[in-house]
Design a protein around this nucleic acid. Structure first.
Lengths: 354, 354
DNA sequence: GCTATTGCCGAAACCGGTTTCGGAATTCAA
DNA sequence: TTGAATTCCGAAACCGGTTTCGGCAATAGC
């Protein structure tokens, strides 16, 4: 109850050069130095340069906490882990976080990570984090078609960027990988190999990527002049088990597909299982193509033909976009998509029934 | 060049209740409120309670940045991703981070994640992060036998906790899972099944866990009165490929082992590969036990007998310890180890040559 | 009953920045 | 040459806290 102040001087006044140090070194006041460093118009170019040079020379870094209490911004990006999420995405997460922090630090920002176990807690976390100025903005992984996070943040005016796209672009900016193009290319690849009965196992229906990939699959089928058999369309599969089950159903049809396009690699690996159980050889009896580029795919037998996405890079891009957004750049310049890269390995082959 | 101040009022004065609000609501000065909330001795118990209650009622939260500029502490824990690390640990990382942020937020702390691509950059990151008060302390994953991070942080007096142990406990506190006990138990388990020629494939030699697990293996062999055959000891294997190679060498010996203890699950899966290549059935011709509890192990054929570690919980524990450490609790009360839990699945069986 | 403590709180300085305001020096217009 | 408009910087207030210092009232000591 009598635990007074700090027990140790611990790291407090460890020789930070302050704005006053810079000011007195130049025989100016700290207000002038501050304005010079923040590009105020009422500072002459000459002294602005003097100040900037001296700050550089003295290795002066403004203490972001001190700035924050006046400006409200603390140069940090927020990311909230959603604990309830299925673990299938966990491997990406590490890469993704690495990219985020890399992109942040590159611009002098820091990354604040919090966690929430459900949706209401999630929204609450956004609120407290920005109220307490622990984050100037947020990056939201896995855009959903109806995204509650977007609603809240858009209304409160807190900057955010999406990994994934949004139908209503109002207030949104994003980075995304064009999964729809990948799905279309997958169909094209299979059609060239002579496949006609091509099945599609889509991912989680609540996510916007699923909608896009479905569109891509349909576009590819249309391009190849192939009819869509509704029996060959499955959805909402994200795990290996989901994939095994969906593929089992497909393979047990009276007229089974000769190729299966999966929106998610883990699902493709489930197809491997279902095929093995039916003594079908992947790449000969049945062709499979995935999407994501997980490591296990490369090590599977045969190695999985897929589209690899660079999660690390996505993190870097999103951090960069968010910082621009926080600095007030125009929204419509802050939307970017890139293609996934096709990796043709061993899980596809010529159609067995030409 | 004329980019003045903030483009938007964005989130600055969004209705925060300040210490002055609380003070005037009670007709006190903010200095009194501050001291009351920080348990200063010169505040009467009566007013202390009044203040605490009112603060509670008004939902007052001190702005950590404002506190930081005076106290030097900002209620945030630091974690630095080491990018160069082999990816084998990536799956844990996500769980681990989830635990860290969970443990942090539970105590009103926040988690700051940065990244570094090499050792010098890593040390530099520690420095800037604590200099700029982005972190009050650090959690260091994967303790090494000679750990440069420990050296630096110990010398500079920055609080830190280790995931893993240290021979020289000076200035260190940690949380760890007793891998040595697991290795000993693994040997015991195999010995009971009649195995005598038991091999050991250890993990990365620079890490302290490897030393401990080796000791545990030796202890187990001693307990079972089994001799150590140096030919059956392999080390520095962390990936599936490492494991495949090491196991291949073991299995090709004139007198191969009948069981293999692996310090790391990925390596155990490599043993599966090597066994399959030699048409040996896991659990019958050769027994394998792993350590870590990775998901792939549960799905392997046969499911891998292993010791599962709860990375999430480790994160929670470490965050808790670090916060205590920052608050100045005695070091020797801040060291904790727990056992891994044995999961007996299908990869071990009776010795084929009794 | 008077002084010396002690308990308790207010006043004010401070932390490291930002921002408003005002005024001196210079330039411009007449 | 003078008045007005600019240019540029210092002074001071402020942000939301913490901490030092000093003083008043109540208690204790004699």
């Amino acid at each position: 109850m009598t635990r007074n102040a700090s027990t140790s001087p611990g790291g407090a006044n460890r020789s930070r050069v302050t704005i006053s140090d810079v000011a007195s070194a130049l025989d100016l006041t700290k207000s002038t130095v501050s304005r010079a460093l923040n590009n105020y118009a009422d500072i002459s170019e000459a002294t602005r340069l003097r100040v900037v040079r001296m700050a550089e020379r003295m290795n002066y870094q403004p203490l972001s906490q001190a700035q924050a209490i006046k400006t409200g911004r603390t140069r940090s990006l927020g990311f909230v882990l959603q604990l309830g999420d299925h673990d299938a995405q966990r491997p990406f997460l590490a890469e993704f976080l690495a990219g985020l922090s890399e992109g942040s630090t590159a611009q002098g920002y820091t990354l604040t990570v919090a966690s929430a176990d459900n949706d209401t807690h999630l929204i609450e976390t956004f609120r407290t984090l920005s109220r307490d100025r622990k984050a100037d903005g947020f990056v939201l992984p896995r855009a959903m078609i109806e995204d509650p996070r977007v609603k809240v943040l858009r209304d409160t005016g807190v900057p955010f960027v999406l990994y994934g796209r949004q139908t209503d672009p109002d207030g949104c900016c994003w980075f995304d990988i064009r999964g729809e193009d990948a799905m279309r290319d997958a169909v094209q690849h299979l059609a060239r190999l002579g496949h006609k009965r091509i099945a599609f196992i889509n991912g989680g229906t609540i996510y916007s990527y699923a909608k896009l990939r479905s569109e891509g699959f349909h576009a590819g089928m249309a391009d190849a002049n192939l009819p869509i058999d509704p029996k060959l369309i499955s959805e909402n599969a994200v795990t290996l088990e989901n994939g095994e089950q969906a593929a089992g159903a497909l393979l047990d049809l009276a007229r089974p597909p000769t190729a299966i396009v999966c929106a998610v690699d883990h699902v493709a690996l489930g197809v491997y299982r279902a095929a093995a159980a039916r003594e079908l050889i992947i790449g000969r009896d049945i062709s499979v193509v995935g999407y994501d580029g997980i490591r296990e795919g490369a090590h599977a037998q045969p190695p999985l033909t897929t589209f690899v996405v660079d999660s690390r890079n996505a993190g870097v891009e999103l951090a960069t976009l968010l910082i621009k957004r926080i600095r007030g750049e125009a929204l419509d310049t802050l939307r970017k998509t890139v293609p996934a890269v096709f990796v043709n390995r061993g899980s596809t082959g010529a159609c067995p029934h030409p």
